[in-house]
């Protein structure tokens, strides 16, 4: 008897996570590395490395980051890399799959992804996915936490920040907004500011990402943030407390403005309810104090309440999985 497995996928610019109907949760960095030459090929013993393994061996690899701004880049290498990554992560999530078993998938995409972007996802998954549903990423978040009434989902990823007004039904086009200001933008700002203040320190994207994930904050007060960086290989401690706050605010300010836009253009009778139900998700929701910063930005509009989801990493994929599991069987047949 063939079994139908269900998978929810959050294909992100920086990280990809899946949740499966077998109870597995798998997450990896969205990158693929190909050996640079025959020596690295021989040392690594593989034609390509995926995720964290690729990142650890990146000096010997040509790294492909197949997504930009939340969608697959428009080149053959990126298509191939996305297919490899998804195929492997699904196989890791469902090792029990037999040949005649079926895999039904729901995958989240940025709220304003184009038809072309969606077509690319269908193309890269057609060899290992039997039925594929494409859903708006912020809607998957709202499905995961069962919040369909008036609320505003703000999904802060690496490539994009997606905003989506929920009002008890599937959100329309005007209920959704995609900003290209997200985690990667913050990384860039942080790199520039650190190099402005300490021109000779050595920083890499990975170092910046680690600093951001460990210390990132937008609150008014914090303990001093002192990080160890190197200058010509000599390590020293650098105080980046103010730099970090300024950069994080550069990320949250436009997001707060967009939240205000979304609230301001909503049905006036429900604006207050929307303001009081701002839900922050995605990696960016882990910035310390971001909920309070958003609440502060809403004060001049009459105040509001913001909360961060519990499980920022898997919230989207769990929502997508939940959709698969609750989908009536005859609906799937239409795809």
């Amino acid at each position: 008897m063939a079994t139908t497995f269900y998978v929810g996928i959050d294909l992100g610019t920086s990280r990809t996570s899946i949740a499966t109907s077998t109870g597995k949760r798998v997450s990896t960095v969205t990158c693929v590395g190909y050996p640079k030459d025959v020596i690295s090929r021989k040392r690594l013993g593989k034609d390509y490395l995926l995720g964290e393994e690729a990142l650890e061996n990146r000096l010997a690899l040509n790294m492909i980051w197949p997504l930009a701004d939340g969608v697959i880049r428009d080149d053959e290498r990126s298509h191939e890399a996305t297919a490899l990554l998804l195929k492997h992560i699904i196989a890791e999530g469902i090792p029990e799959k037999q040949e005649d078993d079926q895999i039904n998938v729901a995958i989240g995409v940025p709220a304003q992804a184009s038809i072309h972007n969606k077509q690319e996802i269908i193309d890269v998954t057609k060899d290992f996915v039997d039925k594929l549903l494409i859903v708006s990423e912020p809607f998957a978040v709202s499905y995961s936490i069962d919040r369909f009434e008036e609320c505003l989902i703000v999904d802060i990823g690496a490539g994009t920040t997606d905003l989506c007004r929920m009002h008890g039904s599937i959100p329309d086009v005007e209920d959704q907004m995609t900003l290209k200001i997200a985690g990667n933008y913050l990384d860039q700002q942080l790199t520039n500011c650190i190099l402005n203040q300490y021109p000779n320190v050595q920083v890499t994207p990975q170092i910046i990402k680690r600093i951001k994930e460990k210390y990132g904050y937008v609150s008014d007060v914090t303990d001093p943030v002192k990080v160890t960086l190197t200058e010509l290989g000599i390590p020293a401690e650098y105080d980046i407390t103010e730099i970090l706050r300024e950069c994080c605010l550069k990320l949250t300010s436009p997001i707060s403005e967009s939240i205000q836009d979304m609230v301001g253009t909503f049905d006036a009778d429900f604006q207050q309810k929307l303001r009081n139900n701002v839900i922050l998700a995605g990696g960016g929701s882990r910035l310390k104090g971001i909920d309070i910063a958003v609440e502060k930005s809403l004060v001049e509009y009459g105040g509001g309440d913001a909360m961060c989801v519990h499980d920022a990493e898997y919230c989207g994929s769990i929502g997508a999985l939940k959709m698969c599991l609750e989908m009536p069987g005859n609906y799937w047949e239409q795809i």
Partner: peptide
């Protein structure tokens, strides 16, 4: 796989059904 796989349970909530239909 059949043991550990969570069987799909179609939602009975009409609001959710309508949303899934639209998807």
């Amino acid at each position: 796989g059949a043991f550990i796989n969570e069987a799909a349970k179609a939602t009975k909530e009409s609001a959710k059904k309508a949303m899934l239909k639209q998807i």
